[in-house]
Design a protein around this nucleic acid. Structure first.
Lengths: 236, 236
DNA sequence: CAGATTTATGACAGCTACGTAACAGTTTGA
DNA sequence: TCAAACTGTTACGTAGCTGTCATAAATCTG
């Protein structure tokens, strides 16, 4: 998910509806973009994938159902939660939407409160937003889902920041990260911290790893930053 | 279970709901039959026992709760998983639903995806209910049907909320849940509560577990949330 | 080698997230 | 009906995490 507020793409042709949706979603703290037909909606989603899509059922150019199907086919948009907006009179059709992979649907007239609740819930759903799975690099094992880190069967105890730092490094073993890049990825874009702070946390991470027996794992690249040693030179 | 696709009996009086449910269940690969009141529902289930029953709470003729009770009494239907569908305003009733022996409940408005997931999960349970209608993690045993929890032969006394919380955690041992996710799952997606409320209930759950001798079961992940420890790490 | 530059580390004050008790408002069950 | 049980919120103490700085150590440069 974006580090800032989640981005929602609204695909809806009726201007009045658009305004209602836009207003409420913005109120709820989301960043909103709008497309007014199915074709453009799919295009926009492919070019710059949002975190969630609110998709009207009846659309000019490309029906909601077809748009939905296309979004599910493309890799870039496959995982994005889609909530269908359908009118009551379109009852029968709307149902079919779920079959093609919408996450949820809401019937008009809908309660804004309910819609927001569903949006929030969809964004939180772990199944959609899964970077999970285990990361294994040079004897170190990190499981994001259970939030556990181990080396050689021994649990590595890490603070929140150290954990995020380790995850970032492990997602790209061997790759060199500058201090600013690490700040971006492990702290968030908005962090305005002294880059020296990274040093300190790298130090703390190293100590935690050492306590579990993993040494020489985080490599210092003088003048550039840090990287993870993917081949365990510690196992010597 | 039937040799062909599992058969689901839907007992629900609102036509719109029926259509949504029927369509989605058929899409998910189940064979569907429908009854529109409690009396007929029980009859149909007795005559030709389905593999699972989706039971609306508010029904003409015979309330969901009563239907549920009758289904649990009859030998032919005793083993059939029942999922209760309840509206949010009927919140407190739903709790009673679990007492009567429903396997699970879903509050409206529910996400279709979630409902399907629960149906699948209920059907996945082997027919040997004695072992698998129960959740067992690290010495703790929870029986959703009877609404009872035990640790080491000792009964754990839990309030309704604590019980739901424990069930959610036990359905995914080790997995880390954020406070919001726990609110979604144990309270419902429309719940608008302070996330700190979760802390308090976790505390209550811990105390209840401790009274039965189960310690260090609920792990705190600072900055993230909570998870269930599947292997007792009492050694600390 | 000396001086310059960069990194490692210990110390520390401030802060945040967590655990818990207390409480008032409800619900439940006898 | 009343007593007991349950719920969500608040307040407060505390452990542990965070970011900064000062200083030591390492590395580079000429």
């Amino acid at each position: 998910m974006s580090l800032l507020s989640p981005r929602i793409l609204i695909v809806e042709d009726e201007p009045a509806q658009v305004e209602i949706l836009r207003f409420n979603m913005e109120q709820a703290g989301y960043e909103v973009s709008v497309e007014t037909d199915g074709e453009k909606g799919v295009q926009a989603a492919l070019e710059d994938p949002p975190d969630l899509i609110l998709l009207d059922w009846m659309l000019p150019n490309l029906s909601g159902i077809e748009a939905c199907r296309r979004l599910r086919k493309a890799r870039k948009t496959r995982e994005i939660p889609i909530i269908l907006l359908t009118a009551r009179s379109e009852e029968r059709d709307k149902i079919r939407g779920l079959d093609i992979g919408a996450d949820d649907y809401v019937t008009k007239p809908y309660s804004i409160k309910e819609l927001i609740a569903r949006v929030r819930s969809a964004l939180r759903r772990p199944t959609t937003r899964s970077t999970d799975g285990k990361l294994v690099v040079g004897g170190i094992e990190v499981d994001i889902e259970t939030h556990k880190a181990r080396f050689d069967e021994k649990t590595i105890h890490l603070g929140p920041t150290e954990f995020r730092l380790l995850v970032v490094l492990m997602q790209n073993p061997e790759r060199v990260f500058s201090r600013s890049q690490l700040l971006d990825q492990a702290w968030g874009i908005t962090a305005e911290l002294d880059t020296r702070t990274v040093d300190v946390h790298i130090g703390r991470l190293r100590r935690a790893l050492a306590r579990a027996g993993a040494r020489n794992v985080v490599r210092t690249i003088r003048g550039f930053g840090y990287a993870l040693e993917s081949v365990s030179e510690a196992a010597r």
